[in-house]
Design a binder for these strands. Structure first.
Lengths: 162, 162
DNA sequence: CCGGTGGAGTTGTCACGTCAACTCTAGGTC
DNA sequence: GACCTAGAGTTGACGTGACAACTCCACCGG
């Protein structure tokens, strides 16, 4: 009974609609960001993470973990953003080559305005469309889904034994 | 009051968790497909669409519309899949160069097995994790979101004036 | 001092996705 | 017939994302 049986038409339709909704929402938000701020979704994530960070600098590893991105992905993204002038890499130790990552002035400016625009779009396209009941149900599902799926990747949750 | 004000920390957390859940779910499903069937998400979409189609052939335009993908995206994807041996392009008219798209035998085989595996994964990671209440709320949200967002792209819904 | 091992970052390669520019054909219009 | 336009498909450039191979340095044991 555990073997995969195909889905009912009803279930397929549910799944399709759900995926489609996500895609449309993501698309809309990305377009908004691109149109109003000339910033991509990936750039936005990096900008905001750096902007919200405690200090003026972050290490690539921290960024990678905080974004839950592959390290190489972060590195590639930083290269592009360095070319655009949003971030700069600085040396860490004397001769060590560990790089610190910091926002440039333009990066800070972009982060601020993008954050504002994005917040507005999230509110308009998502939060405002939810009834309180929907919000609480969806919130609950999200949390349980993250728990269930994240633990599958060895993130050290629910390890149990000390 | 319509001007974008930033989100409350509470709302940001909600949004982050929700996005994270989607990302993890999508990642898990894509990995499953890749691991068990050696087929990517994009390939899967094309395979299934062609497989479910009425006739043995489809036009690029139909595929594009059915998937809600850019035509150039479809074309690129078909080129890759043609190289992999999943689909083939055939000529349409005598000398006209409009291409018909069809599955190869291997494409049909891949479509079948991928469909089965994917269905199992969707059930395991998504459907089975939902309480009936969550299912109905999420379904309702999806539908309303698709309506709201799709109309924004001139898909001919709710145009009102004749 | 030498070799090994492991963590941090980078780089290369390839698939995916978007946009704009292009080609080819068909169907007007004169 | 010559021109023009519209639609269908393709192509190229570029940003994005995943994965594996690589470089550097630090540390550890001999």
């Amino acid at each position: 009974m555990t073997e995969p049986r195909s889905l009912e038409p009803d279930e397929w339709e549910f799944w399709d609609t759900w995926m489609r909704a996500q895609r449309l929402l993501a698309r809309e938000l990305e377009r908004g960001l691109q149109r109003d701020c000339a910033v991509s979704k990936a750039e936005f994530s990096v900008l905001v993470t750096l902007w919200r960070a405690a200090g003026p600098e972050m290490r690539v590893g921290e960024l990678s973990e905080s974004l839950d991105w592959d390290k190489s992905r972060v590195s590639h993204q930083l290269t592009r953003m360095e070319n655009r002038g949003f971030v700069k890499r600085t040396q860490y130790g004397a001769d060590g080559r560990r790089a610190g990552i910091g926002l440039t002035a333009e990066g800070r400016r972009a982060a601020q305005s993008a954050l504002l625009v994005h917040a507005g779009n999230i509110r308009r396209h998502f939060l405002d469309s939810l009834t309180p009941e929907q919000a609480s149900v969806i919130r609950a599902w999200s949390e349980q889904a993250v728990d269930g799926l994240a633990s599958r990747r060895g993130e050290g949750v629910g390890d149990g034994a000390s």
